[in-house]
């Protein structure tokens, strides 16, 4: 790709401001989280007061705890089901199961608002008729697992597709029955993808707002819901800046870790980069 000099200049002039555009809002949040003044307009001096008050705010801490609980819980189940599904779709892809592909894509292409209200109506009726599944962390978890399954399945599936398909014949040939194939071949070779799938599922859950909004109950306020409520009521506030900065920090740490890990493995295997997601 030997672009001409003027074209390269044009591309750079276009692109570096885009990166500025992408990071300026995040930088502003972090900056104002250290602002002495409670008004996020001018930076009047450095202070960690908002972090201190954040860690004394029981509501935020409880919301954070629930977000983690929800994320880890749903991602665990979503990873198990998604991994099985991804392997199953790969294993039986020759069987002409077009409907299965549509089903797997359904949670991805369904607009999240429709997704959310569907879950809400469904859970309301289930609760009304059976007494189970009252709106709360459990219903949120069920909804989260539903949108996590296809993403995990896709990550695992694309890892399997990248492998020599004769590996499965070879394992069978070497006396591995279907159980042994799953535990001695499928799980070991897809481990990077399964781990990536779990992290992706967790991120999806931790970041989701719309679907959580419609499936939550009175006692299941998670962090995104808390922030949304606070922003809608009071607008910008420095405490929100602080908690948002912490979340940005977490993402940065995760990204750098991912980059370092995938770099060190790059020579050996193609890393799967499930960066793409929606909701």
């Amino acid at each position: 790709m030997n672009f001409s000099r003027s074209l390269r200049t044009y591309l750079a002039l276009h692109s570096w401001p885009v990166f500025l555009f992408l990071y300026a809002p995040l930088a502003i949040i972090v900056l104002f989280s250290f602002n002495r003044s409670p008004v996020s307009v001018q930076f009047t001096g450095f202070s960690t007061a908002w972090y201190t008050s954040l860690f004394h705010n029981q509501d935020i801490l409880a919301a954070l705890g629930r977000s983690l609980e929800l994320g880890i819980g749903s991602a665990s189940l979503g990873t198990v089901l998604g991994t099985l599904l991804g392997y199953g779709v790969y294993r039986y892809r020759a069987a002409g199961l077009a409907w299965l592909g549509l089903l797997v894509y359904l949670p991805i292409i369904m607009p999240s608002i429709v997704f959310g209200i569907s879950e809400m109506i469904f859970f309301t009726y289930v609760h009304q008729f059976t007494g189970f599944l009252s709106a709360g962390l459990l219903t949120m978890g069920v909804a989260h697992v539903t949108f996590q399954i296809p993403y995990v399945a896709l990550v695992v599936y694309s890892r399997l597709v990248g492998l020599d398909r004769h590996l499965f014949d070879a394992a069978q040939d070497l006396y591995a029955n279907p159980w042994k194939i799953f535990f001695h071949l499928v799980l070991p070779v897809t481990r990077p993808a399964v781990v990536a799938g779990f992290l992706l599922a967790f991120t999806l859950s931790f970041d989701d707002f719309v679907i959580s909004f419609f499936t939550s109950g009175p006692d299941s306020m998670t962090l995104p819901l808390y922030i949304y409520g606070a922003v809608a009521k009071k607008g910008v506030s420095p405490e929100i800046n602080a908690v948002a900065s912490l979340m940005i920090g977490m993402v940065l740490v995760a990204a750098i870790t991912n980059l370092l890990v995938s770099r060190s493995k790059e020579q050996a295997q193609r890393p799967s980069r499930p960066w793409l997601r929606s909701h």
């Binding site: 492998l163 020599d164 004769h166 590996l167 014949d169 070879a170 394992a171 071949l185 070991p188 070779v189 481990r191 295997q269």
Partner: peptide, 10 residues
């Protein structure tokens, strides 16, 4: 196998 199909994780 033609591609040898050696298990990459072993």
């Amino acid at each position: 196998f033609q591609s040898y199909a050696l298990f990459p994780q072993l």
